[in-house]
Amino acid sequence: MSTTESASNYDRLEQMPVRELLENINREDKTVPLAIEKAIPQLEALVNATVSQLSKGGRLFYIGAGTSGRLGIVDASECPPTYGVPHGMVIGLIAGGDGAIRKAVEFAEDDLEQAWKDLQEHYISEKDIVVGIAASGRTPYVIGGLKACRQNRVVTGCIVCNADSAVAETSDYPVEIITGPEFVTGSTRMKAGTAQKLALNMLTTSTMIRLGRVKGNKMVDMQLSNHKLVDRGTRMLMDELQLKQAEAGALLKKYGSVRAAIDAYNSK
Rank of each mutant, 00 (worst) to 15 (best):
2 S>H: 12
3 T>C: 09
4 T>A: 07
8 S>G: 11
11 D>R: 13
14 E>S: 13
16 M>G: 01
19 R>L: 13
21 L>M: 13
23 E>L: 15
25 I>A: 11
26 N>C: 13
27 R>M: 13
30 K>T: 14
31 T>F: 04
31 T>C: 08
32 V>E: 06
32 V>D: 03
34 L>N: 12
35 A>K: 09
38 K>P: 05
39 A>P: 07
40 I>G: 05
41 P>K: 12
44 E>T: 13
44 E>M: 09
49 A>N: 06
51 V>G: 05
55 S>Q: 15
58 G>I: 05
62 Y>A: 01
64 G>V: 03
65 A>E: 02
69 G>M: 03
69 G>P: 02
73 I>A: 08
75 D>S: 08
78 E>D: 11
78 E>Y: 03
81 P>K: 09
82 T>A: 11
84 G>A: 11
86 P>R: 08
86 P>T: 06
89 M>I: 12
95 A>D: 01
97 G>M: 08
99 G>N: 12
99 G>Y: 06
101 I>S: 11
101 I>Y: 14
103 K>W: 00
105 V>P: 04
105 V>M: 11
106 E>D: 13
106 E>L: 10
106 E>G: 08
111 D>P: 05
116 W>P: 02
117 K>T: 13
117 K>W: 00
121 E>Q: 14
121 E>N: 14
123 Y>V: 04
125 S>W: 06
126 E>M: 13
127 K>Y: 06
129 I>W: 00
129 I>D: 02
131 V>N: 02
135 A>Y: 02
136 S>M: 02
139 T>R: 07
139 T>F: 04
140 P>V: 00
140 P>Q: 00
141 Y>M: 00
142 V>S: 04
143 I>D: 05
143 I>A: 06
147 K>I: 10
148 A>R: 07
149 C>R: 06
149 C>L: 11
153 R>I: 05
158 C>G: 02
161 C>W: 00
161 C>N: 12
162 N>Q: 09
163 A>Q: 12
165 S>G: 15
165 S>A: 14
165 S>E: 11
169 E>G: 02
170 T>H: 08
171 S>C: 12
174 P>C: 08
179 T>L: 07
181 P>V: 10
183 F>G: 08
190 M>H: 12
190 M>G: 10
190 M>D: 09
191 K>R: 15
193 G>E: 01
194 T>P: 06
195 A>R: 02
198 L>Y: 05
198 L>R: 11
201 N>F: 04
203 L>Y: 07
205 T>W: 03
206 S>M: 12
211 L>N: 10
212 G>Y: 07
213 R>Y: 05
218 K>R: 15
220 V>D: 01
224 L>Q: 04
227 H>R: 11
227 H>M: 09
231 D>L: 12
231 D>R: 14
236 M>W: 01
237 L>R: 03
237 L>N: 02
237 L>H: 03
240 E>C: 03
241 L>K: 06
243 L>F: 04
249 G>H: 00
249 G>R: 00
250 A>I: 00
254 K>D: 14
256 G>R: 10
259 R>T: 09
266 N>F: 00
267 S>G: 06
268 K>P: 12
